[in-house]
């Protein structure tokens, strides 16, 4: 840094131009509506705003009854997966400038799970499948006294990708197989099974492989790659599912 620049007037960045964006939201209030219906909202937004900010503005300034889930607002908690212009995204990670604002933006709840109200679905079936794959460490050997269960960086790397899941359900609710067959475990459950199947400290890989060898398990996957494209964490989901398929066939996990 030269001192010369410090003496000049601080450059104020040109103020960002706001503009009006139309959002068309699929509304549903079970106490009033028979069927969901689409409703338009015009919102003043900046290019740097996110869909979540647009939803907040609508809720706070126009229609307090608009219902959606969000918690962290920073892509960590996984509460606000929704279908934005036909693609499953996190509202809090979808910037207005990345969308075509010359056309209205369509926002609706994720598909394949029971609609509760507006943008909220019942996540119970989703978490039910998640629980079924036993997504917790089951190590039957004791570590040496005073030490932890050690793992080499290579062994850790083996399942690194699938540790990133935030359980937002964007993947499972983008899967055409899951839409027609709600019994299918779905990508998210398989991702979280993968995370422990390939963990060198875990001893119950075979149990999970047996669970996923079920009729509604990994073999339902038709490699449409919708899940991989939907995942806000960039997890290579179809790859993870293929690895589980291979492990089911060969019985090898390391």
């Amino acid at each position: 840094m030269s001192t010369a620049t410090q003496e000049t007037e601080p450059v104020t960045p040109a103020p960002l131009q706001s503009f009006t964006v139309t959002l068309i939201i699929r509304r549903y209030d079970p106490e009033v509506d028979q069927e969901p219906h689409w409703q338009d909202f015009d919102v003043e937004l900046f290019p740097t705003d996110r869909i979540l900010d647009a939803l907040h503005k609508i809720k706070w300034e126009q229609d307090g009854s608009l219902t959606f889930r969000r918690s962290c607002a920073h892509g960590v908690c996984g509460s606000d997966a929704m279908r934005i212009n036909g693609r499953n995204r996190l509202a809090c990670k979808t910037l207005i400038k990345d969308l075509d604002v010359t056309k209205p933006i369509y926002v609706e709840a994720i598909k394949g799970l029971p609609l509760e109200k507006d943008l909220i679905v019942n996540m119970d079936p989703f978490f039910e499948s998640y629980r079924e794959v036993q997504p917790f460490l089951q190590a039957h050997h004791e570590p040496e006294p005073g030490r932890e269960r050690l793992q080499s960086p290579t062994d850790r790397e083996r399942f690194d990708d699938t540790t990133k899941c935030i359980l937002c359900a964007a993947c499972t609710s983008s899967c055409p197989v899951f839409w027609t067959d709600g019994q299918y475990f779905g990508p998210a459950a398989i991702v979280n099974a993968h995370r422990f199947i390939f963990d060198s400290r875990d001893d119950e890989a075979q149990v999970r492989l047996d669970i996923l060898n079920d009729k509604e398990g990994v073999w339902r996957c038709r490699t449409t790659f919708n899940c991989t494209e939907a995942c806000p964490r960039g997890i290579q989901i179809t790859q993870a599912i293929a690895e589980v398929k291979q492990a089911v066939i060969t019985g090898r996990v390391r």
Binding site: T223, T228, Q236, T238, Q239, A242, E243, K245, I249
Partner: peptide, 12 residues
Amino acid sequence: LIDLWSKGTRYQ
């Protein structure tokens, strides 16, 4: 190949 080749998904 996607299902059985380890690089299958990468080159799908």
